[in-house]
Simulated scan of single mutants.
Amino acid sequence: MGLAIALASLAATADVRAGVLEIDDSGHVRRFDSPTQFLGSAAEARPIAPSPKIATAPPRDRRAAVALVDAAATRHGLSPELLRSIARRESGLNPVARSPKGATGLMQLMPGTARDLGVDARDPAANADGGARYFQALLARYDGDIVKALAAYNAGPRAVDRHGGPPPYAETRAYVDAILERMAQSVAPRPQSPVRIAP
């Protein structure tokens, strides 16, 4: 049975790719540069459609948005980098972003979620705080399982509960992969030259 090591990859462009090395018991290495699903002892690379382009906030607004998100994360005991990664994926750190489904603001809160949280989703500070509280609640619901919590933030807790984990939606898989890649990139950047493993 091979050992799979996930490497982070975050290109300077909006194109985000997974980087996975599979190292089997004899030391042979295979590389996958797209999200990879492991089936038993074999790995199959399955490309996932990229997410639609997100209109990002201007640089000055983006700095203010980052400050709001970081403050909300710290206030609620979350990693600022994690909550920032969610906000980037959700809205491109655009405090006035609105999705076709009606999600609003930095953390793309749906009207019902904002109502349950008691926040005005149009207020950037309240939106960031509400998103932090909501993600914290999802982490508690799934006993700290960050993959399930991220999937639930994207697809809803009912979908995660119904499937016993992240649902098999291309959008949700791409969402979770992109955020985990960004987090991994922050602690272990991808080397500029190819990784070579001596025989």
Rank of each mutant, 00 (worst) to 15 (best):
R190C: 12
G77V: 03
A73M: 11
P168V: 12
M110V: 14
A73S: 02
A152R: 04
G27A: 05
A72K: 00
V16A: 10
Y134I: 05
R88G: 02
L21H: 08
A72E: 10
K148H: 11
P59D: 09
Q185K: 01
G40T: 04
A42D: 15
N127Q: 01
K53N: 12
E171Q: 08
A128P: 03
R141G: 01
Y134M: 10
D116A: 14
L82H: 03
A152T: 12
A65N: 06
A64Q: 10
L82Q: 04
G27M: 09
D61H: 07
L78H: 04
P100K: 07
M110F: 09
D70P: 01
T74S: 11
M110N: 03
V29E: 04
D143I: 03
A121Q: 05
G131E: 00
A152G: 07
S9R: 14
A49K: 09
D15I: 11
T36F: 06
I197P: 08
G118P: 00
P194S: 09
A12K: 11
R60Q: 15
L139I: 04
E81W: 02
V119Y: 13
V195A: 14
A72H: 02
R98E: 09
A6T: 11
E44T: 12
T113A: 06
A55S: 13
L180D: 00
L3G: 13
A128H: 01
V160G: 04
P47R: 14
R196G: 08
V195Y: 15
G164S: 01
D161L: 08
P191E: 12
R196E: 06
Q108D: 06
A43R: 06
R173F: 13
D116R: 11
A170I: 00
L7V: 06
A14I: 11
G105E: 12
A8V: 06
V147Y: 09
R75Q: 12
G156A: 06
P167Y: 04
I23R: 03
G165R: 09
D143H: 15
A149R: 02
A152N: 01
V66H: 07
A140K: 08
E181H: 14
R190I: 12
L82I: 10
L10T: 07
I54Y: 04
E181I: 06
S193T: 15
R162Q: 11
P157L: 02
K53D: 15
R158Q: 15
Y153H: 13
A152W: 06
G105I: 01
I48L: 15
S85E: 05
D33H: 05
Q136W: 08
A4G: 05
A67G: 09
G105K: 03
D120H: 13
R84G: 13
A125Y: 01
D129L: 00
P166K: 08
R31A: 13
A71S: 14
R60L: 15
R196M: 09
D70A: 15
A151G: 12
R133N: 14
V187F: 12
G92D: 14
Y175W: 11
S41K: 14
G112K: 05
G164M: 08
D145E: 00
L39M: 06
Y153T: 11
G92V: 02
T36H: 02
V195I: 15
G130C: 04
D177A: 15
S51I: 10
A103R: 07
I5D: 09
I5G: 02
Q185N: 04
A65H: 05
A64E: 13
R141E: 06
D61Y: 07
P199I: 08
P189F: 13
L7D: 03
R17Y: 15
R17G: 13
D123H: 05
A159C: 04
